[in-house]
Amino acid sequence: MDDTYMKEMEGLRARMAKLEKGQENKLSAVVFSGGLDKGLASMIIATGASAMGLEVSLFFTFWATPLLRAKGKKPGPKDFFGKLFGAMMPRGAGKAKLSQMHMGGMGTAMIKNIMKKKNVASLPELITLAGELDVKITICEMSMDLMGFTREEMIDYPNLHYGGVAAFVAEAAKSKVQLFI
């Protein structure tokens, strides 16, 4: 075999290795929406993907951030806007509302009731399950800051991190599946 052929082969091999490295068996999702429905979709996909053997990483930002607030934890000192946001935003996944047909609480109560009857796991249950399955959750530091949430008032979750856009993009760039919910 001549030299140019060998060189070409070598180049191809290097490119293959690079491609393989760039595609990990991983799912990265931005969870942006705070609605009960989209929260459920996010957590069902996350737990399902983990069961299928994918590594799963969720980045909670903006309206989805309050889904990770704990029910009874003390937030610590806050400024005026922090207190205002804290009072206006749902305190945890159990308080999330449907993004459609909330109907002053009637729609959300109805769907929760039907879910219980049909034995569908609730959003807080799914978050606990995700923790058991080692689903990684990164909370957007900027959203925390913007809404005045403190780390003390967020849920106790085994694989919980705080980070910014680079933390998400670095993982997403290597993931086979990327979602924005």
Partner: peptide, 15 residues
């Protein structure tokens, strides 16, 4: 029996 998505797949992957 009686379990809904995603629980069957989650349980079977544990099993």
């Amino acid at each position: 029996k009686g379990l809904a998505c995603p629980m069957p797949v989650v349980k079977v992957s544990k099993g």
